[in-house]
Nucleic acid binder design. Structure first.
Length: 110
DNA sequence: GGGCTGACTTATT
DNA sequence: CAATAAGCCAGCC
């Protein structure tokens, strides 16, 4: 229960996570660690990732703007998810070179 | 209730 | 830059 952004009554922590992720503006990206910090959940990067994995397809949450701390996509380069995330980012104007994004340039800071 | 697992991070070697 | 280790949380068996 209360696992998705569409849930009417999501758990407090998840709610914070959705809130932060949805706050990332188009053309910008953030790491799982950053999301956890901005959500007041420092050190729970893994929890953020776990929560994201439960996100249903077709959600309005911009999950594609969340990357690993080194700016790389968190999926295997041969996976379909990787391809989709990569394309979504590019369509927003984010440069993805070798599965990697320059956080210095595209990293988001509230 | 114990142990594994995972869309992770940071520090260390 | 690559490999290791420890830390963290909740769901699943």
């Amino acid at each position: 229960m209360a696992r998705f952004a569409s849930d009417p009554n999501p758990a407090p922590r998840e709610q914070m996570i959705w809130q932060v992720v949805c706050a990332i503006p188009p053309g910008r990206v953030a790491s799982y660690g950053q999301v956890s910090r901005f959500a007041g959940l420092e050190g729970l990067a893994r929890f953020v990732g776990r929560t994201m994995s439960r996100l249903p397809d077709g959600s309005d949450v911009p999950w594609h703007r969340v990357l690993k701390s080194d700016g790389r996509i968190a999926f295997p380069a041969d996976s379909s998810r990787y391809a989709e995330q990569c394309q979504r980012l590019k369509s927003e104007g984010v440069d993805v070179l070798n599965g990697r994004v320059a956080m210095k340039q595209f990293g988001w800071t509230p």
